[in-house]
């Protein structure tokens, strides 16, 4: 498969260009915090409940809140119907996504409680874990959870020996490498880094730099979306 033509990718983007992204804060009425995101072909809803009482009780920690993160793909989110329920892949993604967000949350403010994060993938087109983390981070802020910063995430990879930002499904499936990265952009602290495929050391460093640029643009969009929630209401 040929991915690069005249310096442009299959969907006409430049190698360092993100797909169009749209955040909608507070999309769910009854969640404590929520965020709906459209990231290229991905459509994702994130909901946050809590801090609230922990069930089952034995999971509770006496000195801090616990964080639970559930990443779930809807059965209709991909071309071929997916069997509903957690599988090995989504259990792993739930775990790494939780670990990506966990370091910025001030858990000590809420002992003996839980903060539950639900990320539902309604439509998938590569980079769902990254887009899910972005939405979850905004939903946490919307819920009023104290955090040191927002976590932003995007994928980088390699197609036709070119390092590219924010892969689409074809690039992810048939490309040479895919590497999701999550970070707190202000401190530069990387909280998630996975890689599938092969990159040389030089390419890896180039990809990591590119992901920082991508995450920085996403961080701006997340911030802007949160501010707009209260600005927008002014007009009513």
């Amino acid at each position: 498969m040929e991915f690069m033509k005249n310096g442009k990718r299959i969907d006409d983007r430049l190698p360092n260009e993100l797909r169009p992204i749209k955040f909608e804060v507070g999309a769910l009425e009854r969640a404590d915090g929520s965020c709906y995101v459209e990231h290229g072909g991905n459509k994702i809803m994130a909901a946050v409940y809590g801090p609230r009482a922990v069930h089952p009780r034995h999971l509770q920690q006496a000195n801090r809140a616990i964080i639970r993160y559930r990443y779930n793909m809807a059965s209709f989110s991909v071309e071929e119907r997916r069997r509903p329920g957690p599988d090995r892949r989504s259990v792993e993604i739930s775990k790494v996504s939780r670990q990506a967000i966990d370091p910025v949350i001030i858990k000590e403010f809420y002992p003996r409680s839980t903060i539950d994060i639900f990320v539902e993938i309604l439509q998938a087109d590569a980079g769902t874990r990254s887009a899910g983390i972005n939405a979850a981070s905004v939903a946490l802020a919307d819920a009023g959870v104290p955090m040191r910063g927002l976590i932003s995430s995007c994928a980088v990879g390699k197609v036709d020996d070119t390092v590219v930002l924010d892969l689409v499904k074809e690039e992810d499936n048939y490309g040479q490498a895919d590497m999701p990265v999550a970070m707190d952009v202000r401190t530069g602290e990387v909280t998630l880094l996975q890689m599938d495929g092969h990159l040389t050391l030089d390419e890896f460093e180039q990809a990591l730099e590119l992901s920082k640029i991508g995450c920085a643009s996403i961080a701006d969009m997340q911030r802007e979306a949160l501010i707009r929630k209260y600005r927008g209401k002014e007009d009513e």
Binding site: A141, D142, P146
Partner: peptide, 21 residues
């Protein structure tokens, strides 16, 4: 800032949360 809220800057800087428990 630790939370999503309104920054109140006088002698001290504080953030009044917009949501939370």
């Amino acid at each position: 800032s630790l939370t999503y809220g309104l920054a109140d800057e006088r002698e001290k800087v504080r953030v009044i949360p917009l949501s939370g428990k």
